[in-house]
Nucleic acid binder design. Structure first.
Lengths: 180, 180
DNA sequence: GATCACATGTAAGAAGTTACATGATTCT
DNA sequence: AGAATCATGTAACTTCTTACATGTGATC
């Protein structure tokens, strides 16, 4: 029943629309906050909202009051279900290796949407996959670093350090969830 | 004269083709090494190689010997020029905020293609922009963390920590280049 | 009155995804 | 002989980018 094709931006929108917002509000979020990684271009956001509306995952209504006309979007029950299904997916090795940003994005919505219990489970899965991946990266480094140019070697080190930093974060976050 | 439209994958290919490789070789690199972040799908790689060849940035020749026929690609002088122009761009705040992966990718090719002097300058620019961005993130955190749900706050912390980790890396890398 | 911020859209094109398709060679 | 791997490609579809377009309300 779920398994619609929703692009990453679609999930970002579903997550942010926990409170009703207009396309313009969303653009400002993408322009002014650390959500900058997502495009604030109208050519991305308005069509994405229309797609979600076509699938009945959000519903937009023109707001009457307050001067300018603007279309306020709200998540429907179906939309909330799609978001939950996305958030509830297990953490795979492939996610860690190729879609790390998605994992953090999912986590950022998790407390509000699925509750702290699920966020804790997610973090433990993440920690385990990160740990395994870091080991793999170290092995790869050991096997190859001698034959790499200096900047390539340093770039690989930066990738490893960045995964290690996220691993430390995940452990701290697990502690934060244990404390309640 | 440069300023052709080359997608990220195009630059990855130009960088890797410092040594002659086939499309299949490239796919294996993307499948088996930390370059996994790039797609190993034939529907991405073969068309990308053809585009580069159409622009005369690479040249592919069918290798005769050794059983199977395979098309080995080499970078042309024009291709090397495009790669250098891309690598030589200054590090901007926008790069740091929205295209961090590109910056690391560029750095990984820099030593071989532009030499250590340029790599050192790049690192100093990167360190400066990262430092400024980390300050901005801290300010944003201070201003907003009280009104965020726990998982959102933790996700933001992870972003900040990851930039801080890269900042520390950049300082270490600068030292490595000073030592020669 | 002009300019800026608000607010929403469309069109053309680039590039990636998934899935399918094909054939050669090597291995068991 | 059959399976796995090598090796290259295409087609349909989705989504994003860039650029253009339009109009309103608020501010100087």
């Amino acid at each position: 029943m779920p398994a619609r094709n929703i692009a990453r931006l679609g999930y970002v929108l579903l997550g942010l629309l926990q409170q009703p917002l207009s396309g313009y509000d969303l653009r400002k979020l993408f322009a002014d906050t650390p959500l900058k990684v997502y495009s604030d271009s109208p050519g991305a956001i308005y069509p994405a909202l229309r797609r979600l509306e076509r699938e009945a995952l959000v519903r937009g209504e023109v707001e009457k009051r307050s001067g300018r006309r603007r279309r306020l979007y709200r998540v429907t029950a179906a939309g909330a279900g799609e978001l939950k299904a996305w958030l509830a997916q297990p953490v795979t090795r492939d996610d860690v290796e190729r879609r790390l940003d998605d994992l953090l994005l999912r986590f950022s919505f998790m407390d509000e949407v699925l509750g702290p219990g699920h966020a804790g489970r997610f973090l433990r899965q993440l920690e385990s996959e990160l740990d395994a991946h870091v080991r793999g990266l170290h092995a790869y480094y050991q096997a190859t670093h001698r034959s790499m140019p200096r900047s390539g070697r340093l770039a690989l080190q930066s990738g490893i350090m960045s995964y290690e930093s996220l691993l430390r974060w995940s452990r701290r976050a697990i502690m934060a969830y244990k404390k309640g």
